[in-house]
Write a protein that binds this DNA or RNA. Structure first.
Length: 922
RNA sequence: GCGAGGGUAGGUAAGCCAGGCCAAAACCGGCGGACUUAAGAUCCGUUCUCGCAGGAGUCCAUGGGUUCGAAUCCCAUCCCUCGCACCA
């Protein structure tokens, strides 16, 4: 941390507060943080990149709005506070040791509000340390009553537009907590997915025996059922119908919107050898099998030995003992690479021995996916591909054969943090945002076409996400949040309440001063949509008009920034919501998507402790260093890697910049090479500007810092003796400081003041390229000189004689004409014969054709801009070297002779080409 | 598995869309040197191989192909990152 950083951040408390004005606006915003822990450097980049952009546009003369708020709705902090209250060591250590929360504050964390209050304060403090140019007056959290009013207004409109519908929804649910649980609440089975089974109903003795399957299309091939003889099954009444289920299944079905009454018990073994029936397969026996898990689905399984390896092997084992030998697999599906009975082939090929072999799972997967992707039903079963038949059969079973749906996890052992088992439960009356609506989707697709997306490659991902999104359950029973206005039993789900808050920011500082009760839907209708009249609202007319005009000044936003992991939810959601609420002219204009962060090559993760806290980094190397590293080591959309070594070298680079500027301050010597330096700077300004316009912060820094530094290196080489600085350096300093101001605002401000400039460099104009200072012939001359110096260098390195003199042979004029002809020829293949049509050339004979070949080669090696310049700008090579005579002689410690090649008879002289003099060292 | 993106010299990374500017920018690291009592900082040189003349050879995940010419275009394979939902 540098002293002046502390000083400036105090004086920046209010200067970035933004109000509407005459100038054009530029509105950037970023996905607000959920403040449940300390920020690490990965978070830092998320906010620093938009800050650099905000600062850039401010210098471009825009009124820039860069607001910040805190997302606190949802359940995570509730879970955290509960865990802290319960004395959970892992959580306490995370907060005490990694986030370094003081003991007395930590004690208060049993109240979830305290957690967000503490960390949102910390966030603001650290963000200020980083020099973020945020208008903090607009800060709010998502539980402010005024914000809730805004959410209510939004949802009333969504309801009105038929974007919210009601339905049933399967969720992960913990009976012990009596609540739905998210993945982060799980102790085990974090990746568990809810799978939808179809229950095939077999009749037995007045009971239904439901078998759960993912493959209803195989029902024709059922040869028997499997039951675990050791399990005591339940006789139950489900929705008035008698069923047999495993005890676990009875409980599960009860959670899935069915009424289950106990009737009695029946041991699995009692059902063995009983006959059951289904219209698709007729009467089949129930057989015993140990692989049947009573905790999987219904605990009774239908057997399709032709297509299921488990079934095949279990049947084979029984038949090996001479039992049930009359049962034969019934094939239904043909699939490439397998014979009549795919399950049989797979088992025999793999060599698994019995049904308890661990290889059975993968074998099952193999057969299932082969049949699903390329299998086809036999003609007597419809002949459709399995992909299609599965849907058809499922439909028929559910509609005509009494089948029901049962949800189950794809893995065993899903356990809640409380220690209780988690089940699938159907939540009724759940509200959904109908993202599945094809009309809405199409509108979003259309809108997406007008949005600038950076980088362009992620556009495809957005379009995919729009297509892929299904209805989103947008209400919750628990957590912090806003009550659904028409159904107060529900809270708006946390991602669903954060979709158009960028509009709220535009007037947040004014709204949070008002009484929430006065923010009726009519008030918001007028402010945001211009609907209705400003008269007769709960607020003064002038106030409402003022809010409306400020909103319209800022909106729509210009760019929203976020990490790429939010594409598949938040960033796409907000497009849907903007489309549903706002008119065409207020739709988002652009989005910038970030890459992720690594730490010394490994993934950054708070829970693994593999993080550098942002505050520590700032304290350690200074805010400017952190900023410059985070935006300069990779482009925003690339992953960045925080490496200590690189970070500390960044600090040195800033030091070097400061030194250069400071040592130029009292210098007013002038030199011939000055014009070159000043000319070059124009180019870097132009390039840096282009890079910034396309959010390439890394490229911009390459131009604004490293390219200038490398020019300075050459410039200094061209200054006499030990001179390091000059009036020209002082002159470019002013631009250079401003070029770097968005990146390293603290150091830039310090240098700005030292240079005697008034006010804040943050509001100084961004440098502009002055074309009148660009001097192409001088740049070309220096290019020629430096290339020649390089050539001389490499020759000196190779030769072993002690050099005593240096001769340069200047290419004759006719070769330059050849150069011009070749460089402008549309067809390089024919150019030589074209050249030889020239009288003057023809008389030179072989010398001319040789030169043409060499020149063609040379042109290929030179950068096109240089070739273009050589042709368009004429420089006198003799004069260039004559002017640099002193420099060259000093550089190599050799006397220099300059000769026109055509005046020499030296063998080498003939090698002289335009822009490549022949060199002799003797 | 599915969807999206990516693999370039010791590391980060530019170049790829619009094929010859490419042995391939820039930064970091390594090595050598200058300065210094020393270290750091700074500066100079060097960092694929070969070469006593500015050059040549091999190279851009792997294997094929297109082309006079491929890091760049096409196909296949392998590997990595992100997302796959009710969670911020």
């Amino acid at each position: 941390m540098r002293e002046y950083e502390k000083e400036y951040r105090e004086s920046w408390t209010h200067i970035f507060e933004a109000d509407p004005g005459e100038a054009d606006k530029f509105y950037v915003n970023v996905a607000y943080p959920y403040p449940s822990g300390a920020m690490h450097v990965g978070h830092g980049r998320t906010y620093i990149v938009p800050d650099v952009i905000a600062r850039y546009y401010r210098m471009r003369g825009k009124h820039v709005l860069f607001p910040m708020a805190f997302h606190v709705t949802g359940t995570p902090v509730i879970g955290i506070s509960r865990r802290i209250a319960n004395g959970d060591e892992k959580t306490i250590s995370l907060y005490r040791d990694l986030y370094r929360v003081p003991e007395d504050v930590l004690e208060k964390f049993v109240d979830p509000d305290e957690i967000v209050r503490h960390f949102s304060r910390e966030y603001e403090r650290v963000m200020r340390h980083c020099g973020l140019s945020i208008d903090w007056r607009r800060r709010f959290t998502t539980v402010y009553p005024q914000y809730s009013k805004f959410i209510e207004w939004q949802y009333l409109h969504l309801m009105e537009g038929n974007h919210v519908v009601r339905g049933a929804h399967p969720v992960k649910y913990c009976p012990q907590c009596d609540n739905p649980v998210g993945d982060h609440d799980l102790l085990e089975g974090e990746k568990a997915e809810i799978v939808k089974f179809v229950l095939i109903m077999f009749k037995w003795n007045g009971f239904m025996i439901p078998c759960a399957t993912l493959r209803p299309e195989t029902t024709y091939g059922v040869t028997n059922l499997w039951i675990n003889p050791d399990v005591i099954y339940r006789k139950v009444i489900v929705d008035g119908q008698k069923w047999i289920l495993s005890p676990e299944a009875a409980k599960k079905i009860g959670l899935q919107d069915h009424i289950v009454e106990e009737l009695g018990e029946i041991k699995g073994s009692e059902l063995v050898d009983e006959k059951v029936s289904h219209p698709f397969c007729g009467e089949v026996p129930v057989l015993p099998a140990t692989f049947v898990d009573s905790d999987m689905a219904t605990g009774i399984v239908m057997s399709v030995p032709a297509h299921a390896p488990f079934d095949y092997i279990a049947l084979r084992d029984l038949q090996a003992e001479g039992e049930y030998t009359s049962i034969e697999p019934v094939p239904l599906i043909v699939v490439d690479g397998y014979g009549k009975f795919p399950a049989k082939d797979a088992v025999e090929r793999s060599g698994v021995r019995d049904q308890n072999d661990p290889g059975m799972e993968t074998l099952t997967q193999e057969v299932y996916s082969a049949e699903f992707s390329s299998g086809r039903m036999l003609p007597q079963y419809g002949g459709h591909p399995v992909k299609i038949a599965r849907e058809e059969f499922s439909q028929i079973m559910l509609e005509q054969h009494g089948s029901l749906v049962m949800y189950e996890f794809d893995v065993r052992n899903v356990v809640c943090r409380c220690g209780g088992d988690v089940f699938v439960r159907i939540l009724k009356d759940q509200w959904f945002l109908q993202y599945s609506d094809p009309v809405w989707k199409e509108e979003v697709h259309e809108q997406l076409r007008d949005i600038e997306i950076v980088p362009a490659e992620v556009r495809a991902e957005f379009d995919r996400t729009v297509d892929w999104l299904n209805d989103w359950a947008c209400t919750r029973r628990i957590g912090l949040g806003t009550k659904l206005p028409w159904d107060k039993n529900w809270l708006v789900e946390p991602l669903s309440d954060s979709t158009i808050y960028m509009a709220f920011y535009t007037i947040a500082h004014k709204l949070i001063e008002l009484e929430a009760e006065k923010l009726t839907p009519e008030v918001f209708d007028y402010i945001f949509l211009g609907i209705g009249s400003p008269d007769n609202l709960p607020l003064d007319k002038e106030m409402v008009e003022d809010l409306r005009s400020e909103f319209l000044y800022w909106y729509p936003y210009d760019f929203r920034f976020s990490a790429k992991d939010l594409i598949s939810n938040h960033l796409t959601f907000q497009l849907f919501h903007h489309k549903a609420i706002f008119p065409k002219e207020l739709q988002p204009k652009g989005m910038v998507v970030f890459g992720m962060g690594l730490l010394e090559g490994a993934k950054m993760s708070s829970s693994k402790g593999n993080v550098i806290l942002l505050e520590d980094a700032v304290e350690d190397v200074g805010a400017d260093t952190v900023r410059m590293f985070l935006v300069g080591s990779a482009e925003p959309w690339q992953d960045f890697d925080w490496r200590r070594e690189l970070v500390s070298s960044t600090r040195k680079q800033i030091d070097r910049f400061i030194n250069t500027i400071e040592e130029s301050s009292d210098n007013d010597e002038e030199y011939p090479i000055d014009k070159w330096l000043i000319s070059r700077i124009q180019d870097h300004i132009a390039n840096a500007t282009v890079a910034m316009d396309s959010f390439q912060t890394r490229q911009a820094l390459q131009e604004a810092y490293f390219a200038i530094e490398s020019d300075l290196k050459w410039y200094r080489k061209r200054l006499p003796g030990d001179v390091r600085s000059s009036a020209a350096v002082k002159r470019i300093s002013n631009s250079w400081i401003r070029l770097l101001a968005p990146f390293i605002p603290f150091s830039a401000q310090k240098l700005w003041e030292e240079a005697g400039e008034e006010g804040s460099v943050a509001f100084a104009p961004w440098p502009e390229c002055d074309d009148s200072l660009v001097n192409p012939s001088l740049e070309l001359a220096e290019e020629l000189l430096s290339r020649t110096v390089e050539d001389i260098d490499s020759i000196l390195k190779l030769i072993q004689i002690e050099p005593s003199c240096l001769k340069l042979f200047i290419s004759p004029n006719w070769k330059l004409r050849v150069f011009e002809m070749i460089s402008q020829a549309p067809d390089k293949g024919k150019v030589i014969s074209e050249i030889m049509k020239d009288e003057d050339m023809r008389k030179r004979g072989k010398e001319a054709t040789d030169a043409a070949k060499q020149i063609t080669n040379l042109i290929h090696r030179l950068p096109p801009q240089v070739v273009e310049r050589i042709v368009s700008v004429s420089i006198d090579e003799n004069e260039v070297f004559e002017n640099a005579r002193e420099f060259i002689e000093k550089e190599f410690g050799l006397p220099l002779t300059i000769v026109y090649a055509d005046e020499s008879t030296h063998q080498k002289a003939r090698q002289a080409l335009p822009f490549k003099p022949a060199i002799i060292i003797e």
